[in-house]
Simulated assay, not measured.
Amino acid sequence: MPISPNQGSSGGGTLVSITGSNLSGTTTVRFGTRLATSVTNVSPTTVTAVSPSGTGAVGVTVTTPGGTSNPIPFYYVGAPFKQSLSPSFGSTAGGDTVTINGTGFSSATSVSFGANTAVPTVVSDSRLTVVAPAGAAGSVSVSVTTAGGSNNGLSYTYVAAPTVTAVVPAEGPESGGTAVTLTGTGFTSTNQVTFDGNPAPFTVISDTSVSAVTPPGTGGPVDVAVTNDAGTAILADAFTYIAGPGI
């Protein structure tokens, strides 16, 4: 007499389907010693019931006018507990693999990032990995759903890839030291600014503005790049190094 699913939340409320023979006239379904609720005699071979609360493994029995069946196992599962996730940020385009640590993950079926869900890979009862779906810039709650229920408590921050639209002033001496302002978008989590691949000291003014000081360079136009947690934006030939006079 199979039962599906054969596990559910320790809080109860799991709708299970029990199949067998001679199930017409079912009067009660018990999970261990506790009565199930919402028992429905679907057919002579199928009964559905909603599990009561419980813990551990219990035997499920069906009682009809002809007697009581042998027990079949049903396993109560506690709600998952999340301890940490890494990384805690990623691109709005999604695609970043996130590792979540905690307990009770063995039966995990989905992970929600705000309103968007993804199917996880269960590594162990204490660890799972999931590829973050696409999402809007900002922080969202992360929720893991298992046979035992769902649990939130952790957050994930979506970061938009940067864009660079202008560098002002657009020229300066080869010796470096020119204070410039970069304008664009997605600058809040900037972690590097480079001129022709050379790192420059910088300060984030806002999500659309970064100030930087040019490093030394070679005469001519060079690319300026801004990197944040979601990627790198390059503005080609955005700054020109001017050679000093020679006598």
Score class of each variant (00 low, 15 high):
M1G: 13
Q7E: 01
S10F: 00
G11F: 02
G11N: 12
L15R: 15
I18F: 07
G20Q: 13
G20H: 09
L23E: 06
T26Q: 10
T26K: 11
R30Y: 14
F31M: 10
F31P: 03
F31A: 04
T37P: 03
S38W: 02
S38F: 10
S38R: 14
V42H: 08
T45F: 10
A49D: 13
S51F: 05
S51N: 08
P52A: 04
S53G: 14
T55D: 05
A57I: 15
V58N: 00
V58G: 00
G59I: 01
G59Y: 02
V62D: 01
T64A: 11
S69W: 10
N70Q: 15
P73Y: 00
Y75L: 01
Y76A: 00
A79W: 01
A79V: 13
P80Y: 07
F81I: 10
L85W: 07
P87H: 09
S88E: 12
S88P: 01
G90S: 09
S91L: 09
S91K: 10
A93Y: 08
D96M: 11
V98Q: 11
T99Q: 13
S106L: 05
S107V: 02
V111Y: 02
V111T: 03
F113P: 05
F113K: 09
A118Y: 09
A118H: 11
P120M: 10
V123F: 07
D125N: 15
S126D: 14
L128Q: 03
A132E: 06
P133V: 13
P133N: 13
A134N: 14
A137T: 12
V140L: 06
S143W: 01
V144Q: 10
V144I: 15
T145G: 02
T146V: 05
A147K: 00
G149Y: 08
N151I: 03
Y158P: 13
T163G: 04
A166G: 05
V168F: 04
A170N: 15
P173V: 07
E174L: 02
T178V: 07
T178A: 06
V180M: 08
T181Y: 01
L182E: 06
L182M: 05
T188M: 01
S189T: 15
S189C: 02
T190M: 01
V193Y: 07
V193K: 07
P199T: 15
P199C: 06
F202C: 04
T203V: 14
V204W: 10
D207P: 00
T208G: 00
A212H: 05
T214Y: 08
T214I: 07
P215T: 11
G217Y: 04
G217R: 04
G219L: 08
G220V: 05
P221G: 14
V222L: 09
D223E: 08
D223N: 15
V224P: 04
V224I: 07
A225V: 03
T227W: 08
G231E: 10
G231I: 11
T232K: 03
A233K: 06
I234H: 08
I234C: 06
I234R: 14
I234D: 12
I234P: 12
L235V: 13
Y241C: 06
I242N: 07
A243I: 11
G244C: 01
P245I: 11
